[in-house]
């Protein structure tokens, strides 16, 4: 088994009295693609936010390569460079051109050379089909283009693990495809990724392991082939049923 990259141990997270994540443990290995599915409000997004240190947690530990990720700690900016995050609402910076969006953090945080970073950014943009958009501003791009640019922005930091938080939930079907294709290629390259999604077909294709979360707990986990074909728990089966439709009119 490959080395352990991300370890989550007995994580507890609540907002005031509302418990969002209950004693959750999860280990992600290098090069592994973990897909997290579950109903809305089950704590999937919160889990990603905790991994990025955006939320204070009430108990447990999250470690990346042995170093603890803790909300408000001093090494957090350093650790976050190793964790790329892509948001549902893209969150490109509207006042910066696409290329500036991508190069800002490598220049200001990693203090890399401008020529080198721009060259890398352009070649990454080329690979997702956006080279001609480099000098444009986010508002001039479609949703799918924005999301691909946001993925490039995260990639350009050379992260060790990438977090995707329902990145296609706000997109039209055609745009969903172009974004998912980019993610599939990243998986092929052997990147470590944690993906929260409602796209079941995509999950089946991309995942090494599927985690089903409900009410802040991991209810079931397994290989995608097994999980989608024959979920072991009733709750997961009921959830997967949502995505199936039977014909409502009698057919000859």
């Amino acid at each position: 088994m490959a080395e352990k990259l991300l370890m989550i141990e007995h994580l507890n997270k609540s907002y005031d009295d509302l418990c969002v994540i209950k004693d959750m443990s999860l280990t992600v290995h290098k090069g592994e693609v973990v897909v997290v599915i579950g109903p809305s409000g089950c704590g999937k997004s919160t889990l990603l936010r905790c991994i990025n240190g955006l939320e204070p947690v009430q108990g447990g530990r999250i470690c990346l390569s042995g170093r603890e990720i803790k909300h408000g700690s001093r090494d957090l900016p350093m650790l976050r460079q190793k964790i790329g995050m892509v948001f549902q609402s893209y969150e490109l910076f509207p006042h910066l051109s696409i290329i500036d969006n991508i190069t800002l953090a490598p220049l200001k945080v990693q203090k890399r050379k401008k020529e080198e970073v721009e060259e890398e950014a352009l070649s990454l943009l080329d690979r997702v089909g956006l080279k001609d958009k480099a000098r444009q501003y986010p508002r001039q791009l479609s949703g799918g283009q924005k999301q691909r640019a946001a993925i490039v922005r995260a990639l350009c930091m050379h992260p060790e693990v990438m977090l995707f938080d329902e990145v296609t939930a706000a997109l039209d079907p055609e745009m969903v495809r172009e974004v998912l294709d980019v993610m599939l290629r990243l998986a092929q390259q052997g990147r470590t990724m944690i993906i929260v999604t409602h796209e079941m077909q995509f999950a089946k294709a991309v995942a090494d392991r599927v985690i089903f979360v409900d009410n802040g707990e991991i209810i079931e986990e397994g290989k995608p082939a097994e999980f989608f074909k024959a979920p072991k728990t009733k709750r997961a089966a009921r959830f997967l049923n949502i995505f199936e439709f039977s014909p409502v009119k009698a057919q000859n």
Binding site: F93, Q110, M157
Partner: peptide, 20 residues
């Protein structure tokens, strides 16, 4: 969430303020 997106890239809080 704009701040969070900038923080997730590793920017320090004062850099988030200054650039974003």
């Amino acid at each position: 969430i704009q701040s969070e997106s900038a923080l997730s890239l590793g920017l320090k809080p004062y850099q988030v303020m200054r650039y974003i």
